[in-house]
Amino acid sequence: MAQEITLGQLRRWLILYADRIIAEEEQLTRLDAAIGDADHGVNMRRGLEKVRERLLDEETQYADVGAFFRSIAMTLISAVGGAAGPLYGTFFLRAATSPHNGERVDLPQFTRMLRFGLDGLQQRGKAHINDKTMVDTIQPAVEAMEAALASGQSLAVALAAAKQAARLGMEHTIEIRANKGRASYLGDRSIGHQDPGATSAYFLFETAVVALSTPVPKE
């Protein structure tokens, strides 16, 4: 099985992610209505619809993996609107600056891209683990990828480990108090609700398993 991720697989990943976000709009809205301003669902749907449209356009060409992630980032920062726009935008923009092999990335490179993205995201949002944000999903997922890489696991195993860690991180946000964003005004009343940003971030790792560890038919 291939241990490299192709541009075609990355494209499929973001299309699947967009489909998932569009399908989960109501859930994201419901989660955000409980502790935020109820706009995460509609904002993410609007942004990912634009991403999906671009990715499905046969004429859209990407010079390499960096250009691909940059394009995703620029679409998100202009179309999402809420805090998720600059946050996801920064995640993909920083990922784009990490080394790759042109139209492919291997597991160490992909893991580093996610680490770059996470670092950028944390600088932008100034959030740490346990602040009840998307960092609570992405940081454990990236750490799981890094651990899988260090112990010589395959791409498929690393992606599965990332998904599992992301899920646990997302679910953990139910138990903790929000320290960032509008939800932080609620104090202890934010406990008992799953964070909407942590949820939309989980779908990234969920869709990555299928999209990135199986080959794209026509490629």
Binding site: N43, S78, G81, G85, P86
Partner: peptide, 13 residues
Amino acid sequence: LTDDPYTLGTDAA
């Protein structure tokens, strides 16, 4: 936003 001017939001571009 650039493409949705009357949707509330901010746009770095």
